[in-house]
């Protein structure tokens, strides 16, 4: 600011300089700045808190269970007398349900994004985008109810013998839930592609679809990949749909027609019971939570990196 100040009469300080020397005024400003800084650092404290709690409780857990058996055991029976702690069992449920979700969300989300960005008139886009946003605002427990009591009965008519709890129904509904996320980030990426690229393509006689698929899509690829990866991260961390519709029985399977517990559903199941603080069962949820955090963190970092890259491209 000093550089922009209007120079006063030499030897007499300008008003802003006189004010700048007022002690009370400066102290108050400093104090306020410190307070605001403290508010901003709450986010760092939250991260520190999450890491501290998860690592602390997991450390106790890994003192009793070797990390090797945690990763390789094929059974997850923490509450039995013959306790096994193979996170792979819960991971299989997480991976299968997320895969089903992505098989729904990626084709739907990408098609919607291409349509909205390259074909739709501004007016229909103005209407469609807020409605999609509303869709992503529905509480996940409501999606869980919908999966268990609406989608599963329909699927049971199509696939005879489908159990009441299954990964397929939960995965499909989860996929629909993340469509708005995938569509909106992909659309942002495609709209960031400069108009000149499209005009060049049109000038060569390409149609809208040819331009969209051969010019805009490749140019926006890193942003679209970011959308997919953030979608994966969302699916992996989703809890209530799975806890309600996929069952809570640990089951080492990659078959979406079976019931299986995911990492998140397991945490819910334990939290619903009365496990004493400090027992091994209590600590398993922190080990499971740490696994979940590392998984989503990896996906988020890749996604953010990709997103940043496409922003810098033009």
């Amino acid at each position: 600011m000093a550089a922009n100040a209007i120079p006063g009469v030499p030897g007499r300080p300008v008003v802003s300089e006189r004010l700048a020397r007022k002690f009370s005024r400066n102290t108050k400003e400093r104090a306020i700045e410190a307070l605001l800084f403290l508010a901003a650092s709450v986010s760092v404290l939250t991260t520190a808190g999450i890491v501290y709690i998860l690592v602390k409780e997991s450390a106790v857990f890994f003192g009793q269970v070797s990390p090797w058996s945690f990763l390789t055991d094929t059974q997850w029976t923490p509450l039995f007398d013959d306790a096994h702690f193979g996170i792979g069992v819960l991971l299989s449920g997480t991976i299968t349900s997320s895969a089903v979700a992505l098989l729904v969300a990626i084709p739907l989300g990408t098609t919607i994004a291409i349509y909205l960005s390259e074909f739709a008139r501004p007016r229909s886009r103005e209407i469609a985008k807020p409605i999609l946003e509303l869709l992503s605002g529905v509480p996940t427990i409501v999606y869980g109810y919908f999966a268990l009591l609406f989608v599963t009965p329909i699927l049971q008519k199509l696939i005879p013998g489908l159990p009441g709890f299954n990964l397929l129904s939960a995965g499909i509904v989860m996929g629909i839930m993340i469509v708005p996320l995938v569509a909106s980030i992909s659309e942002d990426a495609m709209r960031a592609v400069p108009m000149a690229l499209r005009e060049g393509s049109f000038a060569m006689g390409a149609t809208r679809l040819q331009t969209a698929l051969n010019v805009v899509f490749p140019a926006a690829l890193s942003g679209i990949a970011a959308a997919y990866i953030l979608g994966i991260s969302r699916a992996v961390g989703e809890t209530m749909i799975l806890a309600v519709a996929a069952g809570m029985q640990p089951n080492l399977t990659f078959n979406p027609l079976e019931p299986a517990a995911t990492i998140t559903a397991y945490i819910v199941q334990v939290a619903l019971g009365d496990l004493p603080h400090g027992s091994i069962g209590y600590q398993t949820i922190f080990a499971a939570g740490l696994t979940l955090l590392l998984l989503t963190l990896a996906f988020n970092l890749i996604g953010l990196w990709l997103r940043k890259r496409f922003r810098q491209a033009y």
């Binding site: 650092s41 986010s43 709690i53 992996v236 998140t264 939290a271 939570g289 955090l293 996906f299």
Partner: peptide
């Protein structure tokens, strides 16, 4: 920069992990 990266990352942390934080920190 640290604060900014933190906020972006926190937005992507699954909500159930906040539950674990609260269980370990606030409750106990």
């Amino acid at each position: 920069d640290l604060i900014e990266i933190n906020i972006t990352n926190l937005a992507g942390v699954p909500s159930i992990v906040y539950g674990l934080l609260a269980l370990g920190l606030f409750v106990y």
